[in-house]
Nucleic acid binder design. Structure first.
Length: 292
DNA sequence: ATGTCCAGGTTTCCTGGA
């Protein structure tokens, strides 16, 4: 079973390329970030024709996360406890946009689904913008709320196969940062505060890709020829709980997806999971022939 | 070369965000 994450940078611009990649690579579940649209604008039919169901959390042209899955998704969540908000309310979204723990409007940055035994989250961590920006404080508070929730979920069920997948907007190790415009001490993504926050997830979830793919970036800025110069950063991660990580049999970073016509600035990150290592119900569901 | 993409609106360029 293949589970992947991809910051697609507008699904309306990219859906042909995304679906082609999904089918070509036999992906079962894809967590998307930066879909940049509302659910009513999402190209649902194109995904359905390729055999994928969708769950979508999008409010406007900013942010937005979604799942495409060949398998049934249940227990859909669009926030987690204590999630802070940011900025002003989005016009026309008053009915669906909740209020965060800090009293500000909640953004479309998280989506949780259950697929068989798996609990999966598609996450678009706030960028931070700059070290002295309110968005940076928001980034750290958002991550702390996620960490606290992760701790609670795993306290309730230590054997939960949980994966936190998405664009974390943090380069945890020096080798993960190859963009010379980012420097430790002056820039987001590499600050001690962000790296400490990332590291604080360590007892709960671990990077399931790095042990298999020790090197390589997942993002290259469109500007300044960053991709041809390979001046990218590794900021997209699949962070798995113990039960999830123990079932991982393979992984890849799909660097070729940064090439060609109209690529996203991020590439997909993939994990292979052996469903037989989870309890039986899911294996049965997984092995059922697909019906179109 | 403050570089390139994306979406929306006040379009046929401007803005904000990354």
């Amino acid at each position: 079973m293949r589970i992947a994450t991809w910051n697609v940078n507008s699904i309306r611009t990219r859906y042909g390329r995304v679906i082609d990649w999904l089918v070509r690579n036999d992906i079962d579940v894809l967590a998307m970030q930066e879909i940049k649209c509302r659910p009513d604008q999402f190209p649902v039919e194109a995904f359905a024709q390729a055999g994928y169901q969708l769950e979508i959390n999008g409010l406007n042209q900013w942010n937005g996360v979604a799942f495409a899955s060949r398998h049934e998704m249940t227990d859909v969540a669009r926030t987690f406890d204590g999630m802070p908000g940011f900025g002003a309310p989005i016009k026309g979204q008053e009915a669906v946009q909740g209020e965060g723990a800090n009293g500000l409007p909640i953004e479309a940055r998280a989506l949780g689904v259950t697929v068989g035994d798996l609990r999966l989250w598609s996450l678009y961590v706030p960028n931070g913008r700059s070290l002295d920006d309110p968005h940076f404080t928001y980034k750290l508070a958002w991550l702390e709320a996620l960490r606290a929730n992760t701790e609670a979920w795993l306290a309730e069920d230590p054997d939960l196969p949980l994966a936190l997948m998405g664009d974390w907007n943090i380069a945890p190790l020096d080798g993960d940062m190859g963009d010379p415009s980012f420097t430790v001490g002056r820039s987001t993504h590499v600050s001690p505060d962000e790296r400490s926050m990332f590291a604080s997830f360590a007892p709960l979830v671990e990077d399931v890709v790095r042990p298999i793919v020790p090197e390589g970036y997942t993002f290259w800025d469109y500007k300044a020829g960053r991709f041809p110069k390979d001046e990218g950063m590794r900021i997209d991660f699949i962070m798995g709980s113990r039960a999830f990580a123990d079932a991982v049999t393979g992984a890849s970073i799909e660097r070729d997806e940064r090439k060609g016509d109209a690529p996203s600035d991020h590439v997909p990150v993939v994990s292979d999971v052996d469903p037989s290592l989870f309890s039986g119900s899911f294996e049965d569901e997984y092995d059922r022939p697909m019906v179109f």
